[in-house]
């Protein structure tokens, strides 16, 4: 890979972003962000009001049906986007910052600090993600904040590991050494020469991770370790739908909401990865011609 690949991304983006999956991912993600932002304007009903017929099947007036308390599911999904999506984004940004900072320090400074950080990461990796997140969430007490904290604890190590690997490879590059020879401090070398050249792959990881984080967060709510009733949270809505299995719409629509967001961000992550990798970018271009 030529070192200038990152710079050429902007001119490559169009080809990569014209792929069908990229367009679908982009449109769906933007649509969900708009729904989250404009939920009070778009939602036909109050998401908490229990004034509709109970367990009404989808139809005019309540397109996604109503739940066992007579609340409009469409409105609850729209309001649910305001809970799940911002929290997921916050979660991914935080784990990227924490994991990235720890990984960069481990990679650049090495020695026992780095070893310590990476053994801690291995410790987290050794547990199945969902189980560990459940244990943490249960230990902290069931609330949405604690669920975010639990997911954060299981999510940072992958960023730390990827960042460390990239920094280790970048540290011995000749331009980084040249900077050190000119008298750059380790901190300046990291900030000016190393980090700007490793951000691309880490951003791809973060984008791909949005789906996983949302799934985990809703999963914790589904298990009763996250959002508390009556707040409209997709995972909790699926959980309550499972109790009334005959009324399929109660669980299905919030489940579809989770599915579409996860898929959309996975498509976006794939696209970003293709766009950043000069080889795939070229392959896409050749196929397009």
């Amino acid at each position: 890979m030529r070192p200038h690949s990152g710079i050429r991304v902007l001119s490559r983006l169009p080809e990569a972003w014209r792929q069908p999956l990229a367009v679908v991912g982009g449109v769906v993600a933007v649509a969900w962000l708009l729904i989250a932002a404009a939920a009070p304007l778009l939602a036909p009903h109050d998401p908490l009001a229990q004034d509709l017929p109970r367990l009404a099947s989808p139809g005019p007036g309540h397109w996604f049906g109503t739940d066992q308390l007579g609340r409009d599911i469409l409105s609850r999904i729209m309001y649910g986007a305001r809970v799940s999506i911002p929290l997921t984004l916050l979660l991914v940004v935080l784990s990227l910052l924490i994991g990235g900072a720890l990984g960069a320090c481990a990679g650049y400074f090495g020695r026992w600090v780095g070893e310590g950080i990476m053994r801690l990461a291995d410790l987290v990796f050794a547990f199945p993600t969902v189980i560990l997140a459940m244990v943490v969430a249960a230990a902290l007490g069931a609330s949405l904040t604690n669920a975010v904290l639990a997911v954060l604890i299981v999510a940072w190590p992958s960023y730390a590991r990827v960042t460390r690997g990239l920094v280790l490879g970048m540290r011995e590059r000749e331009f980084v050494l040249s900077g050190r020879l000119l008298g750059f401090s380790a901190w300046r070398s990291l900030r000016v020469d190393v980090l700007p050249n490793v951000t691309g792959p880490i951003l791809v990881l973060a984008t791909l991770d949005i789906g996983t984080a949302l799934l985990l967060l809703s999963g914790l709510s589904f298990l009763g370790l996250g959002a508390k009733p009556p707040s409209a949270e997709w995972g909790a809505m699926v959980a309550s739908g499972v109790e009334v299995f005959d009324s399929w719409w109660v669980a299905t629509f919030p489940g579809l909401a989770i599915l579409t967001v996860v898929l959309a961000f996975n498509f976006l992550g794939d696209t970003l990865r293709d766009a950043l990798d000069p080889r795939t970018a070229r392959a896409i271009k050749e196929r397009a011609l």
């Binding site: 070192p3 710079i7 331009f175 040249s178 020879l181 000016v192 020469d193």
Partner: peptide, 19 residues
């Protein structure tokens, strides 16, 4: 010691692509 400077072998790796 900054009075010793080096020019490296690989011209494609010796400059920071982002600056």
């Amino acid at each position: 010691l900054t009075k010793i400077q080096m020019v490296f072998q690989d011209p494609y790796a010796s400059l920071n692509p982002r600056r």
